[in-house]
Design a protein around this nucleic acid. Structure first.
Length: 139
DNA sequence: GCCAACGTTGGC
DNA sequence: GCCAACGTTGGC
């Protein structure tokens, strides 16, 4: 079981869109970055991820689950780009802002802090537990 | 809207 | 294969 973090601009694709897709989930397409793609290739069904809103809000708002493993990205013919499908599991009771993450000495190693621009990031079990605690949900 | 960080592209 | 130019991301 691994943990991840997905970033999206909420005015393009936000948590509400994700929730509206229900259990069927949705392709996390459009990623054109090798490191982010490699992270998706490493994902297994049942892995969990945080859903982060960049630009607007700048906060972790919910938890998603991988519901389809890596497959070709349907939005391009370029064979380099794969993606997974994710579905919304539940919102955080309280969003965890980027400022909170940056201010928490236990979270200084998070990719969200150290690799700010990476759009699909790994999260450690420890970080998962801490952020869930801040967000008011069970890990 | 600005600008720093950083990934990608393309010439050599 | 190196590296400068360029484009994009995303916080502020």
């Amino acid at each position: 079981m691994a943990y991840w973090l997905f970033k999206s601009e909420p005015d393009v694709w936000g948590w509400d869109h994700q929730v509206a897709k229900g259990d069927a989930g949705e392709e996390w397409h459009g990623v054109r970055n090798y490191l982010a793609r490699n992270n998706m290739r490493a994902m297994k069904i049942g892995d969990l991820g945080f859903f982060y809103h960049s630009n607007i809000g700048k906060e972790i708002v919910g938890i998603v689950e991988i519901c389809a493993e890596s497959h070709p990205d349907s939005t391009t013919d370029d064979p380099r780009w794969d993606c997974v499908d994710i579905r919304a599991v539940r919102p955080l009771m309280r969003p965890v802002t980027l400022a909170e993450v940056k201010a928490d000495p236990r979270l200084q190693e998070m990719a969200l802090v150290k690799s700010m621009r990476l759009s699909v990031q790994p999260v450690t079990a420890e970080e998962w537990r801490i952020v869930c605690g801040l967000g008011g949900v069970d890990p």
